[in-house]
């Protein structure tokens, strides 16, 4: 009985994923109630799946579990941090009546990123099996995240196309969202590292120097390269 129930749950999840990717059913473009619970569940399950694969580089199950928690955490917390500003920009630009449709697009794009990551997980695993070189693992995951982000943009553009046709001010909101989201997500990813887990380092949920600033590190590094100090 439990096997049947598990199979039913799996087919329901697949149905949900299919509907999200195609933009049909409750995930269709437009207003109405935002299916945030459904998108959230898809995001957590698929994000966890990719995170587990991502963190298994050095064959450490605990790191895999931590990374499984951190991938959905990264997507959800970045969205929550940027949400007040997104809501306010929509309101001030007089786009509140379309907010449900716009927010549906944002959440769907986040769900799409997680689903695509999960779909790319076998490729990441293949990369890990092929090479134990840590920088290669970093680049592989970077490519996977880039591909998933592009897929997320496809979903976001699908939801935003009718909105922009209705009122071009939606383009301002969309660009504002993307700039702020990327700015915050890069920093949050820095705080939540390690995701892959360098083999020479101990397994930890967060590094002991986690609460640093990615942008300050990057500007320091650029400055050192330029000045040779």
């Amino acid at each position: 009985m439990s096997a049947i129930a598990a199979r039913l749950r799996a087919s329901r999840l697949l149905g949900e994923v299919d509907s999200l990717l195609r933009g049909t059913g409750v995930h269709a473009v437009g207003g109405g109630r935002v299916p945030w619970v459904r998108i959230g569940l898809v995001l957590i399950v698929t994000g966890f799946a990719y995170g587990c694969v991502m963190g298994y580089f050095a064959g450490r199950p605990r790191q895999a579990f931590y990374s499984g928690l951190k991938v959905p955490l990264l997507l959800v917390v970045s969205t929550l941090i940027c949400l007040p500003n997104y809501f306010m920009v929509n309101t001030v630009l007089g786009l509140r009546d379309d907010f449900a449709a716009a927010f549906r697009g944002v959440l769907s794009s986040q769900g799409t990123v997680a689903v695509v990551l999960a779909a790319l997980a076998p490729l990441t695993a293949l990369g890990y099996v092929s090479s134990s070189f840590y920088p290669f693992a970093t680049v592989t995951n970077g490519v996977m995240f880039a591909l998933a982000s592009i897929a997320g943009q496809v979903t976001l553009a699908r939801h935003y196309r009718p909105l922009i046709a209705k009122n071009p001010k939606h383009r301002v909101c969309l660009r504002g969202w993307l700039v702020l989201y990327v700015f915050v997500a890069i920093q949050l990813a820095w705080v939540l590292r390690p995701f892959i887990g360098a083999p020479r380092m101990r397994v930890r949920f967060l590094r002991h120097d986690a609460w640093g600033n990615a942008y300050v590190h990057v500007t320091d590094a650029v400055w050192q390269v330029l000045t040779g100090q």
Partner: peptide
């Protein structure tokens, strides 16, 4: 005020 969450987040990560 809507930027407040972003400022607070960066504050917690930045020296």
């Amino acid at each position: 005020a809507s930027f407040g969450t972003v400022t607070a987040f960066f504050t917690l990560c930045t020296d």
